[in-house]
Design a protein around this nucleic acid. Structure first.
Lengths: 385, 385
DNA sequence: TGGATATCGCTGGGCAGTTTACTAATTCCC
DNA sequence: GGGAATTAGTAAACTGCCCAGCGATATCCA
């Protein structure tokens, strides 16, 4: 622990930051309220918040009619629109880009379809076009973006590539961070999509109250993202959660049980086949129910391995198949009971296919905060990386 | 993030603590050296370190002959003996108690054999006797102990009990923390032995350079402890690492392959049987080699599950069988290669059977540090829990 | 219109750390 | 042996920051 000495100026910075924290995420606040929240005296808060106003971090709110006695206080608000973050989901079938302000409020979102067989260059061109459209709609330039995260499939190594494996054709050699760095000066993170979805569930989804979470992505692909002690765990090589690679865990083949179900229309694409089976199972089709049972049996082994390894509080059931949670969750729970020592709570994701981009936003915002903490609080601009 | 405001007195505390950190773990230091390390000015360090001396946290070192020009500086050292910590390993066959000062230097250790069939009361009596002997030898009283950790087998829940399961007879209902709290006022942690061994390997063992570690306890029992991002992961219910409970992971039966090896002396106890097999395998006995291969095959499935789930940098091979790493490590590595995406480095523990008690010391010291950080630095005494 | 109430803005006091300057204690070298 | 060089210890003045407290100000309500 390399605790370093503190002097007055550093103390002032800390107090100014503590006011930023007290301001952010709260309705416009009076000096007295801020003093109460930070433990500082009113005069101190007054001086500091005025410095924040001149720096552009805070703004004075026009007082509306208020029904209190006494002299109405000025109210200050955090200027969440001083900077913005981008969350980018580069999926197999779509590209989704989301823009939020510093408080995480969604400003714009642009979705574009993507060809599953597109090569990396074409895919990145789609991303560029989506970003252009989004920045245009929001009236912004690249310099307004302080941080961004790109979500991709497959484990991401330290260089931001997915060289280990990826279902996207040719993507193993792609370098999305390098590509975007040509236009954006801000730090650019690249992260696995399951991991980002896990982050999103803890931020705005069904796992906001938990610190130890296993996120299960169940769809054509199967994957997992881990949150332990409240923060995303990447593993030393970024491959944490890839339990599906274990032979005893048949995650690669598991969705095959659905596709192989007798009665599936021959013309159905993989996702449609699964939906057909789930619907048939709902209607009581025996063969479909068997297929679902086989699927969940395979799925459960991997989940159980993660649960036993990590002992999470919650398992979040996400991914494309989470729309059919009504038919999957019960058998999955039964299977897990067989395997696990202590069964964590099982919840179904509600974020839909926006979770990856949302998680990207959260990670970018976290990174901005971390840089804010270490940097001095000058005029609002992207704190240097 | 509930950042709270700071005033002058808090600043002084922080600076005093920063001097404590700069003092600790270093040879006796001059004021100038401390100023360089903390970034504070010499006069400030001078005042603060003198306050530390009067409080009893620091002491002036008698200057020896020194071959520098200029006026010789006073040297100050951290009084590591101001407080002490206890690491207690309550094993199946032994009880080991270790005493260290605040810098983690070992002061005393007492080991006592334990009857594997002893009931909890008898086992705790052995612990008490060992502690008595140790405190007596060190000339200390319970009030000199600022923190302690008890290592036990089986997953430890939030109340410090091992109700889920434990190989110790009757131990599921035992409450070692409650028992010790009758004599000791300091905070008492109870933790799983594998987890403590993992902590010890990162502190003084073969994994000091890694932040993501899977510790494998291989012996009559098989277990694991996890360190991620540099800190021990307990899981929500304290059961992280219990991958052995998965049916596909045959950890419970794995050592059976050794005991069932043809040629094992009928009179041998479990541990002796394993040692016999390893020795026979070393000497080229085909049946023994087969038994070892079967053992490692079962062992590897669980390790692979942990490796895939967590993507650690290092797997530490510990436990009683680590003495025979020469004959186990190669086949284990071969098996792991089959299962894993990316093979972490495999290292053999060198701490022997002291690792649990050592890890207990480290955890107790960490806890003391955490309390120091939040409390004011008064005269040296156990910072209130 | 005047009282009640709460905020705003200002001033003096105390504290912590820095800077600067000076004195004290050594060693080195002639 | 004595002076120069070097480094440590100490005291003063200075700056910056927060806090307590007081009067001024703005609004509501009777």
């Amino acid at each position: 622990m390399a605790t370093t000495g503190t002097d007055l100026s550093r103390m002032r910075e800390m107090n100014q930051l503590s006011i930023v924290w007290a301001l952010r995420g709260n309705p416009p606040s009076t000096v007295t309220e801020l003093a109460g929240r930070t433990g500082l005296s009113r005069p101190a808060v007054d001086v500091l918040v005025q410095a924040l106003v001149t720096d552009g971090w805070a703004a004075v709110e026009e007082p509306g009619a208020r029904s209190v006695v006494g002299r109405p206080a000025r109210r200050y608000r955090f200027r969440a629109d001083a900077g913005h973050a981008l969350g980018i989901d580069i999926g197999v079938h779509k590209v989704l880009v989301m823009l939020s302000d510093l408080e995480g409020n969604l400003v714009e979102a642009v979705r574009r379809p993507a060809d599953p067989d597109a090569d990396p260059a074409a895919r990145l061109a789609t991303v560029d076009a989506a970003i252009d459209e989004l920045l245009d709609a929001a009236g912004m330039t690249p310099s307004d973006i302080w941080g961004m995260t790109v979500g991709v499939t497959g484990p991401v190594d330290a260089t931001g590539r997915t060289s280990l494996f990826t279902p996207l054709p040719g993507w193993g050699e792609a370098d999305p961070a390098g590509h975007l760095a040509a236009r954006f000066r801000c730090p650019i993170q690249v992260e696995n999509d399951c991991k980002l979805a896990a982050v999103a569930e803890r931020w705005k989804g069904v796992a906001q109250d938990a610190d130890d979470i296993v996120y299960l992505l169940a769809g054509i692909r199967t994957g997992a993202g881990l949150i332990l002690d409240g923060t995303l765990r990447r593993g030393h090589g970024g491959a944490a959660g890839e339990i599906g690679a274990l032979k005893a865990v048949r995650w690669l083949d598991a969705p095959g049980h659905l596709a192989a179900c007798p009665g599936v229309p021959a013309t159905a694409r993989p996702g449609e086949a699964a939906a057909w089976v789930f619907q048939a199972a709902r209607e009581g089709n025996r063969e479909a129910r068997t297929a679902v049972r086989r699927y969940t049996r395979d799925l459960a082994v991997g989940v159980a391995a993660l649960v036993l390894a990590l002992d999470p509080e919650i398992v979040v059931f996400g991914g494309g198949f989470s729309r059919s949670a009504d038919i999957i969750l019960d058998p999955l729970q039964r299977e897990l009971t067989k395997h696990c020592l202590r069964l964590p709570e099982l919840r179904t994701s509600t974020l839909g296919d926006e979770s990856v981009a949302l998680g990207g936003l959260r990670l970018a915002l976290d990174d901005i905060d971390k840089r804010l903490l270490s940097a001095e609080l000058a005029a609002p601009r992207a704190p240097r990386g």
